[in-house]
Amino acid sequence: MVDRDSGIDAGATTATDSFVSHRNLLFTVAYEMLGSAADAEDVLQETWLRWSGVDHATVRDPRAFLVRVTTRQALTRLRTLRRRKESYVGPWLPEPLLIAPDVAEDVELAESVSMAMLLVLETLAPTERAVFVLREVFALDYDEIARAVDKTPPAVRQIAHRARAHVAARRPRERVSPAEARDVLAAFGRAVETGDLTGLLDMIAPDVVLLTDGGGVVRAAVEPVVGVADVTEVLVRLGGALLRPTLVNGHPALIVRRDGRIDTVVALRLDAGLITGLYAVRNPEKLSRMDRETAVGR
């Protein structure tokens, strides 16, 4: 139908509004499956092209349809990304995102987009990852997930059970409140800035792991740095940089600036009050969105 006064196709407007209203959800689905905002945006573009080409009168549930298309597009891209990661120089880390502070209040959503969780999801097979994200984060029913991943509902139940157990064995043993995480980050930042080795040793677990992603573009460790002594030695080198605490992927992190530009984003993994993981993203291609907030939702 065309609005005679405006000349605008009302059906096209409704379809556009529907896509826009679900955009944050669709981006989050794609990002949690891919760990890359750039690839998630490409998936959304492909989803929009598919959405704009269907007869919307035949779509009973736009949200379910859009999630299904996004999931299928992300699965296709995820398999391509896995081949790309095989030749990646050094550790591969997810692309960090500045996320609105209110996301941190949605504990489950914040945990699902955290660097630590995204790295756990990397250890799942593509279909397992899709099923886990759609079920555990977005609470889709098994029939809906089955249509998205081209499996039967009983098969999806089994995949979900297997993925849930896999993730549970690798996620932090206890959740840390946003307030406690901010306190740890503030103390960590002060210790790094001042070179306070004693302070660092008090808050870092003995078996801490530091992953540094330079992508072969900038200097970075090509192997994980393991153990409090070696990790602390790396951290004290940040003493001359400008450190700014912020929220990255819904959790406290540090932005490291040198010569006025973002040099590194350091996200922390906390477990039982200690820092057990440090994820330092230095690849400039992954820092391009750090100058603005990215909207996520479910």
Results as ranks from 00 to 15, higher is better:
T16N: 09
R261P: 00
R237V: 06
T232G: 14
R171N: 02
H56Q: 14
D3M: 09
D55Q: 11
V228D: 06
S177T: 15
I275E: 00
K85I: 14
A179H: 08
G215D: 07
D55M: 08
S6P: 00
R79F: 01
P224N: 08
D259I: 11
R79W: 01
A229I: 15
L78N: 01
H166K: 11
R170Q: 14
V225M: 09
A169K: 09
D202M: 09
V217E: 11
S288N: 07
L97S: 04
V281G: 04
G53P: 02
A139H: 15
A186E: 12
R258W: 04
A64R: 14
M115D: 07
R170K: 13
D202F: 03
P206E: 12
M117W: 05
G215M: 05
D259F: 13
R175W: 12
D3I: 13
R298S: 08
E223L: 15
E285P: 00
A295C: 05
A125G: 12
V29M: 07
L75Q: 04
E233I: 08
T212R: 08
R289Y: 11
A64L: 15
V120D: 05
M290I: 12
G240W: 07
A104M: 07
D9E: 12
T123L: 08
E46W: 08
F138H: 15
A38Y: 03
K85R: 15
V296D: 03
A205W: 00
D196M: 10
R298I: 11
A148L: 10
P224M: 09
A148E: 03
A187I: 11
D143P: 01
H161R: 15
P172E: 06
L201Q: 12
A116Y: 04
S114G: 05
F19G: 02
L243Y: 03
V225K: 03
R157M: 13
A205S: 09
E233K: 14
R129G: 04
L242K: 12
G215E: 06
Q45Y: 12
L75T: 04
D259S: 14
V217I: 13
R50L: 09
V256N: 06
A295H: 10
N24A: 15
A116K: 06
D271C: 05
R83M: 07
V20L: 12
S288R: 15
T58G: 02
R162L: 11
A179N: 05
R171Q: 12
R175P: 03
S36P: 00
G260V: 13
G240E: 13
L201R: 13
T294D: 02
G90M: 06
R261S: 11
T276P: 00
E223W: 10
G214T: 11
D259P: 01
A148H: 04
L119T: 09
L268S: 01
G277P: 01
Y142I: 11
A267F: 01
V67S: 01
E193Q: 14
D55L: 09
A280E: 08
P224K: 03
L25G: 01
R4K: 10
R282M: 06
G215S: 07
E108K: 09
V67H: 03
A148Q: 02
L268R: 01
T232D: 01
V208H: 01
R77A: 09
L124S: 07
R298W: 13
V137L: 08
V225G: 05
